[in-house]
Design a protein around this nucleic acid. Structure first.
Lengths: 153, 153
DNA sequence: TTGATATCATTTGCATACGAATGAATTCCG
DNA sequence: CGGAATTCATTCGTATGCAAATGATATCAA
């Protein structure tokens, strides 16, 4: 057997896909597509709010008044991003802002009555969105998937 | 038992989470976080290219010359998005553009020599990125997760 | 052939998303 | 106490991501 043959065999045995890189099989690529699909389903059910905007409202419903930064932490948005989201919700009258009495750095965010009504109205639709997003999976698969996805996030 | 008690019991029995909506448990929210984490891991390994930019280069390596729109389809980007990505890659000399001889609507995209070198150099890092993204899971869990994620995407 | 339709690319507008820099206010610690 | 470090918010710049509108070209069908 020639030296070339040995090398070839070695490569085939240890690095069968040395030259191979399948983008379509990489977790990042598929994650991005799955996320895109979800956003699209969301938009089909809730046309006048984006997923981050809804997340902000839903979290405010949970925790009540919080500072803008704290809210960002709760919904996984950095300070710059959450500011934009809150600004747009404020412009639409769904939240209002006030200064923290003691700590003058903090900007307190609250649901308005209209904002609260909106969340309550939208939560059933949000449940539908979750369901439709997971529709390709069986109940058992959903349980497995959610467990594993949570580990990755 | 009072009417109120009956109502309460009914609610508890049939709709235990009527008033409950846990944002943190919704697929969309976790999917967004998992995606964020992946992008962050990507940036830590490949600082000078974004995931979409790398996706474009990796796909061009696979398929060779294609039209801009076709490339967009292959990497799941709409026409407006892919244009921006390709413009930036062109500005950095990693791809070049030419007109289709026959169909004058089409803009052909190709890797430059530099672009090809870059992809080849980055693919090992991309493998590391995939591995690190999936690191919280065991080998068996990875297989399961990828199968289910693919169904959702 | 020609008129309707479809495809390719571009542009505009809006909404995340994040790094980096900045300023104001608070907290921590020596 | 008082300076250093931290936290909160804002701003700027850059990069997706998509809907909608537009123009150019190609294709299809009557």
């Amino acid at each position: 057997m020639s030296a070339e043959d040995n090398l070839l065999k070695l490569v085939e045995a240890e690095e069968p896909d040395e030259n191979d890189y399948r983008l379509q099989e990489q977790v990042g690529f598929i994650l991005r597509k799955a996320h895109q699909r979800h956003v699209s389903i969301f938009a089909a059910h809730i046309a006048d709010l984006t997923p981050p905007q809804f997340a902000a409202l839903a979290k405010l419903r949970d925790v009540g008044e919080t500072s803008q930064n704290q809210l960002g932490t709760l919904i996984a948005m950095d300070a710059a991003t959450v500011k934009g989201v809150i600004d747009r919700l404020k412009a639409r009258g769904l939240v209002d802002l006030s200064k923290h009495e003691v700590d003058k750095r903090r900007l307190l965010v609250n649901l308005t009555a209209e904002g609260r009504d909106a969340v309550e109205r939208l939560i059933p639709l949000a449940r539908d969105i979750t369901q439709e997003t997971l529709a390709p999976l069986s109940a058992k698969e959903i349980a497995t998937f959610m467990k594993l996805l949570a580990k990755l996030a």
